[in-house]
């Protein structure tokens, strides 16, 4: 495992097709410890398929997914989570019938392997730790509100707190800022970035908001028609002719010429 020593996650020749259509073709990449990596590309380029393979919702047709050197391809999502891979979803998913803090407590209970306990009330378990996580995402004030009443941006924050419950090494974030306003987007990603730096977590995220990508990502990879067509820092990607053609267009619908 010499090559993957420094990387938290490594994809090797990842391939998946649906009914003869290649969704992801021979994708290889590495994510280093503490790296903030953006995956961009046109809709239908295979980003979600990639994510779903990494977190176990889909099994790849071929290729390896190495998490700290261990091949996790084909494992169930819950087992991958136990190895320290957290995930947030494009359409934020929380448990609507629970309060905000109960959402986080449920994750902590699972992390402590107490899911099958039948007797002592759950409400008292890990409450302090749950509050602490909520404080980190600035949601401690809403701890006892039903999560379904939250505004969408707040749901995303709660989801982040849930994803942090098992002290992940790697966080997969599928369009973390989808459905948020420009200001909120920056607020959320800034928060994630801060947590990442504090805790040394690596993050792989997809995003359509180029402002966010250019402002925060350490490195950017571009997927088009299932293939990895570019991998580099913001400047390299911005100047990449092929990426411009398949994805950016003229660039007039996002940031005014990022520096």
């Amino acid at each position: 495992m010499s090559a993957s020593d420094s990387s938290v996650l490594e994809l090797r020749g990842l391939t998946k097709s649906f009914g003869g259509v290649h969704a992801v073709r021979d994708v290889s990449l590495k994510i280093g410890k503490g790296e903030f990596l953006a995956m961009i590309g046109p809709n239908g380029a295979g980003k979600s398929t990639c994510f779903n393979m990494i977190n176990g919702q889909l099994a790849p047709d071929s290729g390896q997914i190495l998490c700290e050197g261990k091949n996790i391809a084909g494992l169930a999502p819950r087992d991958i989570w136990r190895l320290g891979v957290g995930r947030t979803f494009q359409v934020a998913a929380t448990f609507g019938s629970m309060t905000v803090i109960e959402n986080v407590q449920t994750a902590l209970i699972s992390h402590a392997r107490e899911t099958y306990r039948l007797w002592r009330p759950a409400a008292s378990r890990h409450r302090a730790r749950a509050l602490d996580l909520l404080r980190q995402v600035n949601m401690q004030g809403a701890a006892d509100r039903p999560s379904r009443e939250l505004a969408y941006g707040d749901v995303k924050r709660v989801e982040l707190a849930i994803a942090l419950a098992n002290d992940p090494k790697l966080l997969l974030m599928d369009e973390p800022t989808a459905g948020m306003g420009a200001g909120e987007r920056h607020g959320l990603i800034e928060l994630v970035k801060r947590l990442v730096v504090e805790r040394g977590i690596s993050v792989l995220f997809t995003e359509h908001s180029m402002d966010v990508v250019f402002a925060f990502a350490d490195r950017i990879v571009v997927l088009a028609r299932g293939r990895l067509i570019a991998d580099g820092d913001a400047t390299a990607i911005r100047d990449n002719e092929q990426v411009r053609e398949v994805y950016f267009g003229t660039g007039k619908t996002f940031a005014r010429a990022p520096a």
Partner: peptide
């Protein structure tokens, strides 16, 4: 109309 689609599509939509 620009939500969740690639910049190129956003431009076409405009």
């Amino acid at each position: 109309p620009s939500e969740g689609v690639a910049p190129l599509i956003v431009e076409q939509m405009a």
